[in-house]
């Protein structure tokens, strides 16, 4: 990502003195500068190092700025204060909250897949369904989930059910749309081939259309999995006894801002991990569907 760029700049910076060394006596500083340039070049090739340095730099700047200007912790706590809360809260409490949020996010996401893909297939096969369901889906999508969430909580009562439904509502629209697009994007030649073979319709779906939709579905899954975390948190804001979103809300109401920031950090890490998992699943199960890196 950013690492090749660092590699390129460091090598071009080092190119000059290296060439100069051959033609005439080298200045005394060159060996050191060369070594530094070479080290930078090697560092540029370590994957993720640039990202890590950027992150570390940002955190360091944050820490120094907060201390230097004595920013009150309810405005912006220092990174050290945020990390300190992890020890105070204790890992078992963190684990409880993380498990609660993860459970809702994953179950909502799973339910969303179970509904969205068959629905897209059905809409592809039955034209009338497509015409009648699509406007309905758009209406659901246009309604802010944050606004329906309290209503759903009231209707479905206590337990995970309302939270899972909220998560499903927020995640399934991109999935339906992407799957439907993918199913329709199949090369028309293969559909003609299927028709000329007089093959049964379900095989046109399972052997041609669905596999061709896989790249589309995975693009949507990547969007949906991060939306799932948002859905779970929104639901926890409305009503919950546990969960990272619930934890953030409680911490904020108690003016324990470093704790709330800690919760935020956990959510970001969770989203990132889930996103990477989706990418990993695609790479393992459908390597052919990845964009060609050339």
């Amino acid at each position: 990502m950013t690492s090749p760029r660092i590699c390129a700049t460091s090598s071009s910076a080092s190119g000059q003195p290296e060439m100069a060394q051959e033609s005439w006596p080298a200045p005394a500083v060159t060996p050191f500068r060369d070594a530094l340039a070479a080290a930078l070049r090697r560092a540029g090739q370590i994957p993720g190092l640039a990202t890590l340095l950027t992150l570390a730099g940002t955190v360091a700047f944050w820490e120094v700025a907060v201390r230097l200007f004595a920013v009150p912790s309810y405005l912006l706590p220092a990174p050290s204060a945020i990390l300190g809360t992890f020890g105070v809260i204790g890992w078992d409490r963190w684990a409880t909250h993380i498990a609660a949020t993860l459970r809702v996010a994953l179950m909502g996401f799973g339910l969303s897949i179970l509904i969205a893909i068959p629905l897209a297939v059905l809409m592809m096969r039955v034209q009338i369904l497509s015409r009648t369901l699509y406007p309905l889906l758009v209406v659901i999508q246009s309604t802010p989930v944050v606004a329906i969430a309290p209503i759903i909580i009231v209707v479905l009562g206590a337990g995970d059910a309302p939270r899972i439904v909220i998560t499903t509502l927020i995640t399934f629209f991109p999935l339906v749309v992407a799957t439907a697009t993918g199913l329709a994007a199949t090369p028309p030649e293969l559909i003609e081939l299927s028709r000329s073979l007089r093959a049964p319709g379900f095989r046109e779906m399972t052997q041609i259309r669905l596999p061709f939709a896989v790249p589309y579905i995975f693009s949507a899954l990547k969007i949906s999995i991060t939306l799932a975390v948002i859905g779970a948190v929104v639901a926890e804001f409305c009503a919950a006894e546990a969960g990272v979103g619930y934890f953030i809300q409680v911490s904020t109401s108690l003016f324990k801002l470093p704790q709330a920031w800690g919760g935020l950090l956990v959510l970001a890490a969770m989203s990132l991990a889930l996103f990477q998992t989706v990418i990993l699943v695609q790479r393992l199960l459908f390597p052919w569907s990845l964009p060609k890196s050339r």
């Binding site: 090369p187 030649e189 093959a199």
Partner: peptide
């Protein structure tokens, strides 16, 4: 038998599976 302008093969299937595809599909 039909041969199209573009090969339009199945990108996930091997060459052999692509050749036997009409039978598997039917």
């Amino acid at each position: 038998g039909i041969v199209f302008q573009k090969p339009t093969l199945l990108p996930w299937a091997t060459v052999e599976e692509n050749v036997t595809f009409p039978r598997r599909h039917k």
